[in-house]
Write a protein that binds this DNA or RNA. Sequence first.
RNA 1: GGCGUGGUGGCCGAGUGGUUUAAGGCAGCGGUCUUGAAAACCGCCGAACCUGAAAGGGUUCCGUGAGUUCGAAUCUCACCUACGCCGCCA
Length: 450
Amino acid sequence: MCDRSSTEIAAFSRSPTDCRPSDFLMHDIRLLRDQLDRLRDGMRRRKKLGELAPLLDRAEELERDRRSAITELEAQQAQRNRLTQEVGERRKAGLEATDLIAAGRAVGDVIAALEHRKSSAEAAVQALVYELPNLTFDEVPEGGDEANRIMRAWGAPRPDGSLIKPHWEIGERLGLLDLTRGAKISGSGFIVYRGIGARLVRGLMNMMLDIHTVEHGYEECSVPLVVNRASMTGTGQLPKFADDMYHINEEDLFLIPTSEVPLTNLYRDEILDATELPKSFCAFTPCFRREAGAAGKDTRGLLRVHEFDKVELVKYTTPESSLTELELLTSHAEVILQRLELPYRVLLLAAGDTGFASAKTYDLEVFAPGVGKWLEVSSCSVMSDFQARRANIRYRPAPGEKPRFLHTLNGSALAFSRIIASLLEHGQQADGSVRVPEALQSYIGCSTLR
RNA sequence: GGCGUGGUGGCCGAGUGGUUUAAGGCAGCGGUCUUGAAAACCGCCGAACCUGAAAGGGUUCCGUGAGUUCGAAUCUCACCUACGCCGCCA
């Protein structure tokens, strides 16, 4: 078991609106000199070592140069401090100081050059470190998605799957999906829900939020859908995944790909009290994804779209309790699937299939008989201190003690479009109508979609 | 959008070019006193980085960045942000 308290790689902007190389918490870059082997092993477990090994070597070299620049720079700064202090003393005594001023000017030139060298090295190290994914926990299987592990399953896919139509057919026939007009007004991958379809969205939102707030104790938040660069960097979407996001040029703002971003950045640059932890939040928001590079994949229906709704869960915990909290958070997502009577399975993702910022992830998959696939409807992750470092979120274990980075977790509970696809396909009846699960009936006011 | 005023450590707050090495207070921690507590008094008390086996030494940080200067919390410019007034607006 690895030390979860102060391990993960990272780097970190602390400015509210910007991310400049000169303003980083650098100390965990020590991993580059102290624990290079651990970093290498982490990348190997993700099957990324071939790709990232040269980057690690380069980063280590730059880090050495950064430190030597700092050492020289600080010696020169100390020299300058002595000179300027003496200038002050001579002035006070009414004496000339032209020689000291000349010397000071010379030292100033040296300092300027060293500062430039330091900030170049720092920016370069930073850029490389930003490309390194989180280290996964030891219990995460090595390898790619072939090594994913099915942990448990709930319910059973219906036996008559071959008779089931895909959700887009049933949805359009019942008039609750209008894919053609969605494409007309915005583009392919933008959905119009109509009539009972729109009411289904609203009902799912209320049902999920009610369960998480009332039964599971999450604080509900209504958050901005547009966030700044520092927030996107804090949770790890930037700089590596810039192409996946919609960007507003004039203001340099981004449309959120998930409400994990605003919820996790709520406490950016803050120090929480240990007694406040764990903190649990949920939010309903649309999520925007460009899906660049996914052209031609799952183009029909609701499986891969540019805008979808989601209820997200986010937790802030101590390093000691984050794994327990992951199990809890995952179970909270499962509750929704059980209430919706959708058969699902829980996968522990292998290291190579685990997301960039995550240390351990469970995926929840629902079987959709119409398209004949398991659909990923939730991804529940513990990010260890990867995001906390980037976003500078700490907690004080006890009064008077040093602040430590906390752990963040998040999970979808759940993503709507695939859930709607699953509901339509799983609930299909012989006459083409769709049965509504009991827990949802009061939210949408009927027991059958027809 | 226009004009104006602010942004200083966990909090409040002084500070307009050179012992600021950031005053003072509150909170916190330790101690003296006390049967105990309170009060009073004394001491400690920000973050990060570099160096070092350690002890220690050094550097940076006053919203952010860029300038001016031998020297910037302090002067200049831009930006962010909060508040006030005016304009516009659901």
